[in-house]
Design a protein around this nucleic acid. Structure first.
Lengths: 397, 397
DNA sequence: TGCCTTATTTCACGGCCTGATCTAACATGA
DNA sequence: TCATGTTAGATCAGGCCGTGAAATAAGGCA
């Protein structure tokens, strides 16, 4: 209930350093003069702090901008090679490990396939550790320059030193992924739900840019959501917030694979859509099959849109976001053809005030953004100023 | 997306002043020594800042605590008469205006009845303005000592200088209550949804005390909720967040008085319960009637509990709160007899991880806490240090 | 080449928090 | 009664910080 604020005069500098760094990161190359305007700091302070940052090699000068009759402004930017971050995407069929510089340019990538039903924890851990070594080798990067590893996993992640994971589809129940990885690497680890990492990727670099209150929904075989309040991913008391897929949209309705009835996922998850269309869910062709259903305007699609509209409307009523981003492969297929009808369904099910403030758009990053988003967990910590602990953050292990 | 932090060395003092004030307010009489421990500030700074606060008459000394062999500690507390706050409850049948000191002790009260269907804006405005004058006169309080007026109203409040209100049940559509009141008083005004003010009352002084992530649901004729994230009432982009009553719990289900179908309120609102029981909603006896239904274990109650369970489960899945408080007159009647069954219904409809972190309890303040909560809007602003603007705050007009 | 314009740095100043030290206020026991 | 021990609170010097004003840098233009 109480939230203690800053204290000493030193925190002031650390905070302002973080403000400048964050501004430079998101506003791109900027002169000191502009920074002063953007942050509200005096020119003198900007000069001081950027001096420190340059001395620490955290930022670098990035060319001049000519002016008409005055000293040209020197552009500053975050030094992309000050450090590197690794993002890991643990999916149902694969483990992807990617190495990025601070500009989020991909430097190396390693991929491992997971066979259906073979989600042995030890195997996944081995893949992740091998992937880290592989991308460091491929990128020619020393481990000492890596700021950390972000890992997006399915299911619920309980923050804490163990990073306990509960993932139905993997058969994982309280698996201490963090602790297991800790045995194999000394890099800082940040484990979070894959929908949340994907949401943060859309927020930072995709369709969510600039939004302060946004929701990114992920429609795939399953259904997830990432809730952004005040520019930060909302995690709740135990970091499981945002479990939209198993909210009840029809009390006593269809059975869901989670065991309950009437879950949203039982209506709008791709697996369920195909099932209701009377098609067996052939893993290999599900994307093409769904696209075909959408193209031909199958009745099941209409029903799905109704339920999706109700589900999104519930989010709008509860969170009053300024933006809703529809992502995930099934979401993109559905949205590309049916966005107007989806909006109509949302309007029919939500209160008009919040509906009007929420723009509904499609994701821009594609389904592969989980690893990118996981890497942003590390960058976020970096931008907050290193060692700046806060309960808002995901489990740093 | 960016959230700029503090800047100058002066903000530091203001922040620490606010930290101490807040700590004193919620932790009660405390010595300087203890304050140092509670806030992390050095004893020297505590001494300095409390010195300022005492000089400003914001806090006062409040007796000594004997010690065994040392200088006794001087207790400090917020000066309850440093200022006064007014809380207004605009309900369907009444307008209540209450004057509180900073200890939230009621100093005076004025009540005005509203006839059913007579919710003329001008009438409500007249009642509020008359009530302010009345409580000031009755309390012998000069207007200059009033820190502000908090007003809890039904419906959606759009923050802004006008405080536009959209209240179906009142027939209010974009009524600029703030602007209308502004013409009649120069006191600072804070307008917010009544469920939110009630929730804040429970959070500060009732069953929500100490919780950081909590949800207070309000079951009356209608259904509302107040969502507390990080110790603060969550308002979203346009301050309409928390509209739980019209989330869809049964796509295509019962017609709701809002015009849509399948709203939660159409199942668990008291009006709907009575209607489904085949009873006409006699305004005068609805509380007794509902209590009788609950006592006799009518089938409609069982159904209601199922829907309530699903509705609360959705909140738990989405927000992962540590506490859920059930309030409102219907909620208290239902909860007093059926809390175990409600919990069971919630468990059946929510994911186990978040369910286990959420304790479900009954409200402690009774249905009259709307005005109290409205007054806390003013106190909250006061504790933040006056002129400490933040988008989190309700519309200060 | 000298003046004008704009960006950045330097500098003196007033604030702030802190650890160390000092003073206040009480209990105890000889 | 009075010296001693103990704890609470106040004071002080020191080290940082951000700011406005003034100084300096770096170009365009005539």
């Amino acid at each position: 209930m109480v939230r203690p604020e800053r204290r000493t005069v030193r925190d002031l500098r650390r905070g302002n350093r973080a403000v400048l760094l964050r501004t430079l990161y998101f506003a791109g190359p900027t002169s000191r003069h502009e920074l002063s305007g953007l942050t509200g700091l005096s020119a003198a302070s900007v000069s001081n702090v950027t001096g420190d940052l340059i001395a620490d090699h955290v930022i670098v000068e990035a060319g001049l901008v000519e002016s008409d009759g005055g000293r040209p402004r020197v552009l500053l930017r975050v030094n992309p090679t000050f450090g590197y971050v690794i993002g890991v995407d643990v999916g149902e069929t694969h483990v992807h490990v990617e190495l990025f510089d601070l500009d989020m340019k991909e430097r190396a990538k390693a991929e491992y396939a997971l066979l259906p039903g073979r989600h042995d924890v030890d195997l996944v851990v081995r893949h992740i550790l091998a992937g880290i070594d592989a991308v460091l080798a491929a990128g020619g990067t020393d481990q000492a320059h890596v700021l950390g590893v972000g890992i997006g996993v399915p299911g619920i992640v309980e923050s804490g030193t163990d990073a306990l994971i509960h993932a139905h589809t993997f058969g994982w129940d309280a698996v201490p992924l963090g602790a297991l990885l800790r045995a194999g690497t000394s890099l800082p680890l940040y484990v979070d739900n894959g929908a949340k990492t994907m949401g943060q990727a859309e927020l930072w670099f995709g369709a969510g840019r600039g939004a302060r209150h946004a929701i990114v929904v992920l429609l795939g075989s399953g259904v997830g959501a990432s809730i952004i309040t005040d520019g930060l991913t909302y995690r709740g008391a135990n970091s499981s917030a945002g479990e939209w897929g198993h909210t009840k949209i029809a009390v006593g309705g269809r059975a869901c694979r989670c065991g309950a009835r009437g879950c949203l996922e039982a209506y709008i998850g791709a697996e369920s859509i195909l099932e209701r269309a009377g098609l067996s869910a052939e893993m290999a062709h599900e994307q093409a099959t769904l696209a075909e259903l959408v193209r031909t305007g199958a009745p099941v699609i209409e029903e799905t849109i109704d339920y999706l509209g109700a589900g999104l409307a519930n989010l709008i009523n509860l969170f009053n976001p300024e933006r809703i981003v529809i992502g995930g492969w099934a979401g993109l297929i559905l949205g590309r053809h049916e966005l107007p009808r989806i909006k109509k369904a949302v309007a029919a099910n939500s209160l008009s005030q919040p509906y009007e403030t929420a723009s509904i758009v499609l994701g821009r990053l594609g389904p592969d953004a989980v690893a990118l988003g996981a890497a942003t967990l590390v960058v976020e910590e970096f931008l907050l100023g290193k060692g700046f602990s806060s309960s808002e953050q995901p489990a740093a292990i």
